[in-house]
């Protein structure tokens, strides 16, 4: 018989069934209420007139010279949130590294053990530089085109994933990954603190904004997005690497 953590036996099939029915009923009542309220929220209809959106839409291109307003919101108006999100990723890698610490295989001994075919091995060698280049392009042009640091970093990490899957003995140095992600994080925070010193508030833009639609424009935004790109790339690569080398 299975024991749960309080040490009591999991038993009594009948009360279990009653419980399940009760929970289901409760969920249905809750769901109906929720659906009722949410359906009355007509999608796409404008509810408010004096929110923050107009401010963002005009200030983004006019003051910050950023054509991608979403990037302006993410990195400038709400840059503090982005710093937090970057930290969340950092914590996820730290947590995974800490928990799987003792369960790591030696290099070359992995969970995915079947050898890849010649085509995959040859093809991934050709594709790898192209994927990395695309990733870098996406995060460098974050303030001009759709995409940005998070997306670009993820693309870079997929390049490494391809190499790790194609070649069994492909290794990524953990030390290098640690250094890259630490430096990226430090740069982001230091840029924020520079804003505090040079201007008056944390993460304030202290660089010239340039002209709209130029690659070198938007003040701090491209720099922060490049840093984020490096950080996300290094972190996701580290996550993939740790997961692939996990013992079962």
């Amino acid at each position: 018989m299975k024991m749960n953590m309080t040490g009591r036996k999991i038993n009594n099939y009948k009360t279990d069934k009653v419980k399940k029915v009760l929970v289901l009923l409760l969920l249905v009542v809750f769901g109906v209420y929720l659906a009722d309220v949410l359906f009355s929220l007509e999608f796409g209809k404008q509810f408010f007139t004096d929110g923050v959106k107009d401010f963002y839409l005009t200030k983004g291109p006019m003051d910050l010279k950023v054509s991608n307003t979403i990037t302006a919101i993410i990195v400038n108006f709400r840059g503090f949130d982005t710093l937090g999100e970057v930290t969340v990723l950092f914590l996820a890698t730290t947590a995974m590294g800490g928990i799987l610490y003792k369960k790591r295989h030696k290099v070359g001994a992995r969970t995915v053990l079947f050898p890849s075919s010649q085509i995959v091995m040859a093809g991934s060698k050709i594709l790898f530089p192209a994927i990395i280049l695309l990733g870098i392009y996406v995060f460098v042009h974050g303030h001009l085109t759709p995409g940005g640091g998070f997306q670009g970093g993820t693309i870079v990490a997929t390049g490494f994933l391809l190499m790790l899957l194609a070649y069994q003995d492909y290794t990524v140095s953990h030390k290098v990954l640690t250094i890259v992600e630490s430096f990226a994080g430090i740069t982001f925070t230091v840029i924020g603190l520079m804003g505090l010193i040079k201007g008056s508030t944390f993460l304030e833009n202290f660089m010239p904004v340039g002209t709209l639609n130029n690659l070198f424009s938007g003040g701090l935004i491209p720099i922060i997005y490049i840093v984020v790109g490096f950080k996300v790339g290094a972190e996701l690569t580290g996550l993939i690497y740790t997961a692939l080398h996990e013992k079962d």
């Binding site: 930290t87 250094i179 992600e181 430090i186 925070t189």
Partner: peptide, 19 residues
């Protein structure tokens, strides 16, 4: 000092610790 340091300094430290 300013209240932002309560968040910025520990974040900086957390990124620095691995190095």
């Amino acid at each position: 000092g300013s209240p932002i340091l309560f968040v910025a300094v520990p974040l900086l430290a957390a990124f620095l610790i691995p190095l």
